[in-house]
């Protein structure tokens, strides 16, 4: 019996010891989801308080880090998702359309992808901007897989979606991300020389667009 009284105290210390090493990981994900430090800090703090309150529901032997991320995800959805009017959905609808046609082009034409060697040339800020502006479902899946190294099974647990949904979010999310970051790189001009084929396409597109726009 006396053991039981002790356990409420030691639970706190166990929790701290188990949970505190994940502050940076949780904060990094929270920061990329909320896109500002203050909200990210509030979100992480809320995650810790909720996790502490429900620590008895955590099943020993299961993945503690994944459990914390699941709480973070739920807190994000409850508090922040509604507030975020960005990213502009219409822009992404356009990108998705472009992506569809590009994927089917690729499927039918056996083209050599000129972007192959260009990925590494994209500046950090353009990669980050592309990631930050992804729809949150895609962004979260990519953060969990690429930055936190969770397996598909763990991501499915955290996001509470089927494995197939994890796969499709990663697939579509990464295609969108790639497309957006290469577009930003070209906008900034530094991929121009490396990507003549693509530039021709874009010039043609924009000329066509101008022609249409001017009637």
């Amino acid at each position: 019996m006396s053991k039981k009284v002790d356990s409420s105290h030691s639970q706190g210390w166990n929790f701290e010891a188990a949970a505190m090493p994940f502050v940076d990981s949780l904060y990094n994900t929270a920061y990329r989801m909320t896109r500002n430090s203050e909200d990210a800090q509030d979100l992480v703090q809320e995650t810790y308080l909720k996790a502490y309150r429900h620590y008895d529901k955590f099943q020993e032997g299961t993945n503690f880090k994944a459990w914390l991320f699941k709480i973070l995800k739920n807190s994000f959805i409850n508090n922040y998702r509604k507030k975020q009017s960005r990213p502009p959905q219409s822009d992404f609808a356009e990108i998705e359309d472009a992506l569809e046609s590009r994927v089917s082009d690729e499927a039918t034409q056996n083209i050599k992808n000129p972007e192959d060697e260009l990925l590494e040339d994209v500046l950090d800020e353009d990669v980050q901007r592309a990631l930050d502006e992804l729809p949150h479902d895609y962004r979260m899946a990519i953060l969990l897989a690429d930055l936190e190294g969770f397996s598909y099974k763990e991501i499915a647990e955290i996001l509470e979606v089927p494995l197939g949904t994890v796969m499709s979010r990663l697939y579509r999310g990464r295609k969108l991300l790639e497309s957006a970051m290469l577009d930003y790189a070209r906008e900034h001009g530094y991929l121009r020389d490396g990507s003549p084929a693509k530039m021709r396409t874009r010039d043609a597109d924009s000329k066509e667009y101008r022609d249409k726009a001017s009637g």
Binding site: V23, D24, L26, Y27, N28, Y31, R32, S37, A40, Q41, V44, L119, E120, V122, D124, V127, Q128, L131, I142, D146, L147, R174, L177
Partner: peptide
């Protein structure tokens, strides 16, 4: 590229 270029934000 995603892994390397998205600098981690420390708490």
């Amino acid at each position: 590229v995603v892994r390397k270029r998205c600098g981690r934000q420390m708490a």
